[in-house]
Write a protein that binds this DNA or RNA. Structure first.
Length: 542
DNA sequence: GTAGGGTTAG
């Protein structure tokens, strides 16, 4: 661009509209909008050269706010260019970008001819500002007018169809894509991956991905997101690994999708490697060079907190230049998970001192901390305060924490009273928390009440059967145990054994209770016996 | 010889 400018400024002595257009377009391509505007002024006011239908689309694209757009829009009438299609598309695009729907529609309606690009400007513009119903409406009108959708229409419409309309319309559009040969376009295939992912057709999404000849960063990110949104965290990491081995550089989107997967799998080693990658590549840096992207820091904190490395999470937290409610919630929830009740309460006061308002998620963290830390008085107090002082109406999630808290502490009667009188609708989750408490404290009567509720609400959940059967087992009611087993077989419910795993060097080792499948099982159990006998020496009772 | 649309995350 520097050479282009010096040629323009020193070698060309009689500038014309063409040279100016090239310079202005070039400056805008290099994101030098302010300079572009200077040249635009200079051409008109100093050199008296008239801008033309090539100049305006560029200049409109460079506008940073709607005031500038309106000024340019006014100029267009002076030059008689208000009906030019290129100019109109740029205007529609720009007005919608700033949320000025009426102005965009006025330009659109005023055009005497409408080509596919102009329609796309409307479709993609509404999509960008989240007005998805408008997207579908405009798309319908476009088809009624007999305008053939282009690749750009498809990439604009598919995410919205996936979100709002479902797979039947999505498949119809996929058919159209194949008929038109648009599937050779990477962006179109990328939106197909997204469409199938959003409609929960994971195999179709992966199928598209695997058959693509050329994959860009969007393709990889999309297929990774499909896995993460479905809760398949292993799948997320599998495709992340493939992406790295394929030589594709992860970007901001990749890491913000992959870090939560590490968090859920407690994959601290991979998570901290990604953190290192973010630091060395400067991915998390804000555009101004100072500070970090807020969401990236939250994702990093969340990963460390979930992996149990609260100290590191805290380091990241303390260094953040700007924190939002989610940042505070992550710290509070992290302390809560480790039963550090006092840290939770301290963090909550610091949060309020920092003028941050706690939200519903904050109180889920606080109440679950009270549950795990045995802080009954505080827990009850917060349930009242969250409504009275902070104006947040408790939901089923909050009541679940309270039931869990009272249940663990053995206050089953009070838990039952709240459970049956609370002003929100119950669900199987809260009853299961209660059932677990009944099992813990050996109350078979209330356990049966809870179990019957759960079997009505969610008859196919295996964990509930195991809980109630354990209650009966503890009471020696083996006939009831076998009846539960029978019911499970009848409903074809199978309990998948819970497993534990540890990450060692470059491998993950998974094991279940009484597992003897490991090659070194003899030594493992010998070490275990040694540990338990040492614990007995210290008078430890499990 | 110059110009106007697109896809992924939180």
């Amino acid at each position: 661009m520097g050479y282009a400018l010096s040629v323009f400024n020193t070698c060309i002595h009689d500038h014309n509209v063409f040279n100016y257009n090239v310079i202005i377009a070039g400056l805008i391509d290099h994101k030098l909008a302010t300079q572009a505007f200077q040249y635009f002024l200079e051409m008109r006011l100093i050199e008296f050269i008239m801008p033309d239908h090539f100049t305006f689309p560029c200049v409109i694209k460079a506008c940073l706010d709607v005031v500038e757009v309106k000024k340019i829009h006014g100029l267009l009438f002076k030059f008689g260019l208000e009906l030019d299609l290129y100019v109109g598309s740029a205007l529609v695009n720009c007005y919608l970008k700033f949320g000025f729907v009426e102005d965009a529609e006025e330009v659109f309606d005023g055009m005497s001819v409408r080509d596919v690009v102009l329609w796309n400007a409307m479709i993609n513009g509404f999509s960008q500002i989240g007005q998805f119903d408008k997207v579908l409406e405009v798309f319908g009108r476009m088809k009624d007018q007999g305008v053939v959708p282009s690749r750009f229409t498809i990439t604009g419409i598919l995410p919205v169809v996936g979100m709002k309309e479902g797979i039947d319309n999505g498949r119809a559009l996929h058919g159209f894509v194949l008929k038109m040969g648009y599937d050779s376009c990477v962006a179109v295939s990328n939106s197909l991956i997204d469409l199938y992912g959003k409609c929960k057709c994971v195999d179709d999404a992966i199928g598209i991905f695997e058959t693509m000849h050329e994959k860009d960063i969007f393709s990889w990110n999309s297929v990774i997101c499909v896995h993460e949104q479905r809760g398949d965290h292993y799948g997320t990491l599998k495709f992340f690994r493939r992406m790295v081995f394929a030589g594709m550089q992860p970007d901001l989107v990749t890491v913000t999708t992959t870090l939560p997967a590490c968090a859920h799998l407690a994959a601290l080693r991979i998570g901290s490697k990604i953190h290192g990658y973010i630091i060395t590549t400067g991915l998390g840096k804000c555009k101004d060079g100072k500070g970090h992207d807020l969401h990236i820091d939250n994702a990093i904190m969340y990963m460390y907190a979930k992996c149990g490395s609260l100290g590191v999470a805290r380091l990241v937290f303390d260094k953040m230049s700007y924190k939002d409610t989610a940042s505070w919630n992550i710290m509070i929830t992290g302390y809560g998970m480790q039963g550090l009740g006092n840290e939770v309460l301290n963090t909550l006061s610091s949060m309020c001192e920092a003028q941050m308002k706690p939200n519903d998620a904050t109180f889920v963290g606080i109440l679950s901390a009270c549950s795990h830390g045995g802080l009954l008085t505080q827990g009850r107090m917060f349930l009242d305060q969250m409504h009275q002082i902070y104006g947040i109406v408790p939901t089923i999630e909050h009541y679940s924490c309270v039931i869990d808290m009272l249940g663990r502490a053995g206050q089953l009667e009070e838990a039952y009273k709240i459970l049956t009188t609370m002003p929100v609708e119950d669900n199987p989750v809260i009853w299961r928390a209660f059932l677990a408490a009944c099992r813990l404290h050996g109350n078979a009567d209330l356990a049966e009440v809870a179990a019957n509720m759960i079997f009505k609400l969610e008859p196919l959940h295996c964990g509930s059967y195991v809980l109630i059967s354990n209650v009966y087992g503890a009471e020696g009611r083996y006939e009831d145990v076998s009846e539960i087993r029978h019911t499970m077989r009848e409903h074809n419910v199978k309990k998948i054994p819970g497993c534990s795993w540890i990450e060692l060097k470059n491998g993950v080792h998974v094991f279940v209770t009484g597992d003897r499948t490991h090659a070194e099982d003899y030594h493992i159990y010998a070490a275990l016996h040694h540990l338990t006998s040492r614990l007995r020496d210290y008078k430890y009772i499990a």
